[in-house]
Design a protein around this nucleic acid. Sequence first.
DNA 1: GTCTATATCGTGATAGAC
DNA 2: GTCTATCACGATATAGAC
Lengths: 209, 209
Amino acid sequence: MSGEEKGVHGRRTGRRPGDARSRELILDAARTSFAATGYAATTIRGVATAAGVDPALVHYFFGTKDGLFAAVMELPLNPSQLVEDIVAGDVAGLGERLARRFLEVWDDPVTGPPLTGLIRGAASHAPSADLLREFIGREMLVRIAASAGRPDAVLRANLCAAQLMGTALLRYVLRVEPLASTGAGDLLGWLGPTLQRYLTADTPERPVG
Amino acid sequence: MSGEEKGVHGRRTGRRPGDARSRELILDAARTSFAATGYAATTIRGVATAAGVDPALVHYFFGTKDGLFAAVMELPLNPSQLVEDIVAGDVAGLGERLARRFLEVWDDPVTGPPLTGLIRGAASHAPSADLLREFIGREMLVRIAASAGRPDAVLRANLCAAQLMGTALLRYVLRVEPLASTGAGDLLGWLGPTLQRYLTADTPERPVG
DNA sequence: GTCTATATCGTGATAGAC
DNA sequence: GTCTATCACGATATAGAC
């Protein structure tokens, strides 16, 4: 306000001036909007209004709409750590640990919404689809499936992903009842064995037909 | 061209004038576009161009973009008939019959694409979401689950739907490999037992945690 | 039944004052 | 760091000629 403050303590001392609270307000609003309505239906003007700031500010901070999306999708979770936790332990409990971690992350109010936005966006926004594919593939499930040491590990990982993404779609995006309201503990009993079977069972016979 | 022809054979004779081939061309193009890029990214101009007609014609036939979408989603399949086919037969084969019909319908080049469009649209287009919820719920899976005669039939149906919608998302929308290229026969061996367990197994114990 | 022309709107993005 | 003003674009939709 009253001129430059730098230099009082010598160079590079004191906190940098930028990033007032507005940046976080914008990110929060964007997170909510992307999660609630997807990429296409989210407008910069709408985000700005929800955040109580001017639309131009959004561009100032994030450049483009894609930049804003990318910033929101900087997921506050560490896939490698997750994989380590799931893989650690006996193979017999692999499916249940996977299901448990999955539900924890999606039920969490901070890590869940960006993921919901990711699924919504994957339908019509190519970068989202790529991100989700990557998330499904390389980073997570393939490594888990590989740790079980069975053949067809990638297909097994895909099947797990299908069960989990489908659960996410119905439970968190479409909010289909009763699945959306069923407790994570009850769901575990259903999902755990399914994942366990995909990960460790013998490759099934091909049914007639 | 040369004035009115009615009255030659008395009233109400001869075929009605409307519905030239353009209508079908538009529907085909719209089906493709909705399936490929989703609702938001599909433009009336794009559909008109792909169909080789004028954009105004689209409005003439279908009124609004939503009207066009609704027309495309008049699914060329009969849910009641499907349910009957699946339910008929021994309960032990219920899961496999469900998986087989599902893959048949989605792999079919005429019934598959509209369904792909439906999933894409459900992410950000409320009417699509409603339609999909209805399709998942009332019309199909709940009736199938009920036929197995176990408690929690609706939750069981939701779990089946999660597995199937997730499979559709990865296989037909995101085209994740190797799931997208795996033959229906091989998939049956994996999906059938999962659905069978959801439909007929005892309600599982709730795992600790 | 088909197309041309256009009205109206909302979007993402930028330039520049303060 | 924030806001005003505006641009260029593409969308849906409509009126009306042929």
